[in-house]
Design a protein around this nucleic acid. Structure first.
Lengths: 229, 229
DNA sequence: TCAAAAGTGTTGATATTACACCCATGC
DNA sequence: GCATGGGTGTAATATCAACACTTTTGA
């Protein structure tokens, strides 16, 4: 019996669906491929998994190498491995997804990316490989995820207003939410700490600032946190 | 620019977490490994992905080869690929999970499985590799899944009683449910068709039989079906 | 004084839980 | 006639959606 595996080995890659928010639309970070196959096509940042790194590390590394976008919180989405999804060779990809504040990251093309850009999540250009399918799944997952857990705090400054966080939810879900109900529910979760401070220098009544209370949040997660807008 | 990929390639496997139900406990299908590493240890059925098959096909094939269990509805769970999870070599596994009626499947060991068996999901023996972790994740996912979609109809005869389906839910969730509330809610979803028939030959009042209405179900899924027990 | 966003409560409708007894059947 | 599971309703409570006006601030 052999002690090492002998098999035709597929290549293994990771791909990253990074969603970005500013004050309007949910966007996706894409690169323009410089090489065949699909040279010139837009695609997800990603690449080969190296021998000594975890899948999650590979995702971070490839994202940073190709786009300069770093330190993104990524979660595993799913794996895609149909034979034929890459025209050259059998390639299995493990997809990750995450959400960032768009203005925090100034992507610049590098490695084998010819260009980098943000595209509206609901209307990207045609993508290389099966990346269109991956983006669609990531979007559904992000929405489902948002319904279960308070995502989005990473997107905001450490101190933020309730309207800001509501804006995040509205952008991701793609629909308006009732201000009073949203506030009531979010505050009821107990994961926000109200600060004594308010906004400065805004041309309207200054809003109270809040802070995410990671400690409280972790405590609640253990009892099965659930946050449904 | 090279036209094929050159990289140290990890091996890629699939592993299957098959949950089985009878009238009591939720169990998991395991094989006893015949080979190193972990010879003699219990593990998930699984193996290498072949060149011309999809990941899902590989999962089905390996499951059938090693256990004789066939035609199981499997969903992708997640991928696991930490370096070091296999002592010999870099191996990335794509895990699948599914749920079957235990009595429909008489597993028999084959291929490189020394033995096959069902073990209570909440108390399996120590498993090879990181399979313990995979089973734990699969269980959480199955429970979450059950809360969102009426799983479990595949587990029952085409015509079943409400008590039978309640039994499925109780076994998966691991807690008793209120009979009246469960019935009310399940019937309210509208995915069950009440039949004119009742059970035969039972030593108590014969229960009414129902049938799953896949047509109605699909119609509802489009509007975002949600079934919370 | 105007524009812009902050902030705040109530109500009616709906959903959820908890709970106990009689019914039909086979043995 | 008894053991076994089948079947049924209600009341108390909690949750949810919908909705409009006053306040503060800077320009």
């Amino acid at each position: 019996m052999s002690f090492t595996y002998r098999h035709a080995r597929p290549a293994v890659t990771v791909d990253c669906v990074v969603f970005g928010l500013d004050d309007e639309l949910l966007k996706v970070l894409l690169i323009q491929r410089d090489r065949e196959p699909f040279a010139g096509r837009w695609a997800l940042p990603g690449g080969f998994v190296e021998a000594e790194e975890t899948l999650a590390q590979a995702a971070q590394r490839e994202l940073t190498e190709e786009t300069g976008v770093a330190k993104v919180y990524l979660e595993q989405l799913a794996s895609f491995g149909d034979p034929g999804r890459d025209p050259r060779d059998r390639v299995i990809t493990v997809a990750y997804y995450g959400l960032v504040r768009r203005l925090d990251h100034a992507p610049r093309a590098a490695s084998d990316a010819r260009a980098v850009g943000w595209f509206p999540a609901s209307r990207c250009p045609p993508l290389a490989f099966d990346h269109g399918e991956i983006v669609a799944l990531a979007r559904r997952r992000l929405q489902a995820r948002l319904r279960e857990q308070p995502v989005g705090f990473e997107l905001l400054p450490r101190k933020f207003t309730l309207s800001q966080i509501q804006g995040v939810y509205e952008a991701v879900l793609g629909r308006p939410l009732d201000k009073r109900n949203f506030r009531r529910k979010l505050l009821a979760t107990g994961v926000l700490r109200e600060l004594a401070e308010t906004q400065l220098g805004v041309a309207h009544r200054a809003a109270r600032l809040y802070q995410f209370d990671a400690r409280e949040y972790r405590a609640r997660v253990k009892q099965g946190f659930h946050f449904e807008v």
